[in-house]
């Protein structure tokens, strides 16, 4: 069985006549350490599929397996634990808590994992150094550029040593140069740390760099 696998995933929203199917009968396998790009137009179901793969929402039918365990059957408590320890998200925007410094944002999952404060700070410093923000630990999100905010989100994934990183349009709101920097950072995380990365993007640079590209159209793999 692959590291990450989904079988016949379908996600419907609404009820009766107003039902919208965001993802329809999608089956997909992702190997450990792979860099996969999910591409497709807006509304093709990329974000919903990422949420389903990361147990952020539950499918209407179908199943998701991570390391052979069916995470779609996990209880809310187990899903929270999974999100704290193994799965990380990088969103297009709203990645950070505005009232927390970037160091506090980076180590927030560790706080939920009850990691001791000093250990958290040490870890946070190290990963922020790694993404090039070692000198801005006390800055607040409002003081950062869009690219820097995405770096913090990546650093957060590194801080908790997650082995699956799901990035939803991480370059969507960035200029070309910054978008390339963030893509390169994700590639580096994948290469250096062996983190499995699934990126939802229609950015040609990301699509071009991915080891494998899967295109979604109207909720289905085309």
């Amino acid at each position: 069985m692959a590291f990450l696998e989904c079988l016949h995933l379908t996600r419907n929203y609404g009820k009766g006549a107003v039902t919208v199917t965001a993802v329809q009968d999608v089956s997909l396998q992702v190997e450990k350490g792979e860099f996969l790009c999910l591409t497709g137009r807006s509304g093709s179901g990329k974000t919903t599929l990422l949420h389903l793969l990361g147990a952020l929402e539950s499918p209407s039918t179908g199943a998701v397996y991570l390391d052979g365990r069916e995470i779609t059957r996990f209880s809310p408590r187990m899903k929270s634990h999974l999100l704290r320890t193994r799965v990380s998200f990088v969103f297009q925007s709203l990645n950070l808590i505005t009232s927390l410094t970037i160091l506090e944002n980076t180590v927030l999952p560790l706080r939920y994992s009850r990691v001791k404060r000093m250990e958290r700070i040490e870890k946070g410093r190290k990963v922020l150094q790694e993404v090039g923000l070692g000198k801005r630990l006390g800055a607040y999100p409002s003081e950062l550029s869009g690219g820097e905010m995405q770096r913090v989100a990546v650093a957060r994934a590194l801080a908790k040593c997650s082995d699956l990183l799901l990035a939803d349009e991480p370059t969507g709101e960035l200029d070309t140069a910054t978008a390339r920097e963030i893509t390169d950072l994700l590639l580096e995380v994948n290469r250096v740390h062996g983190t499995t990365v699934v990126v939802a993007s229609h950015d040609p640079y990301v699509v071009g760099k991915a080891a494998r590209v899967v295109e979604l159209r109207d909720g289905k793999i085309s």
Binding site: H81, L83, R84, F89, L94, I97, Y112
Partner: peptide, 16 residues
């Protein structure tokens, strides 16, 4: 609401 959603996406439990 969005920040609470983000916290839950980062692994905050209902209790947290």
């Amino acid at each position: 609401t969005a920040e609470i959603g983000l916290k839950k996406a980062l692994g905050a439990s209902n209790g947290d």
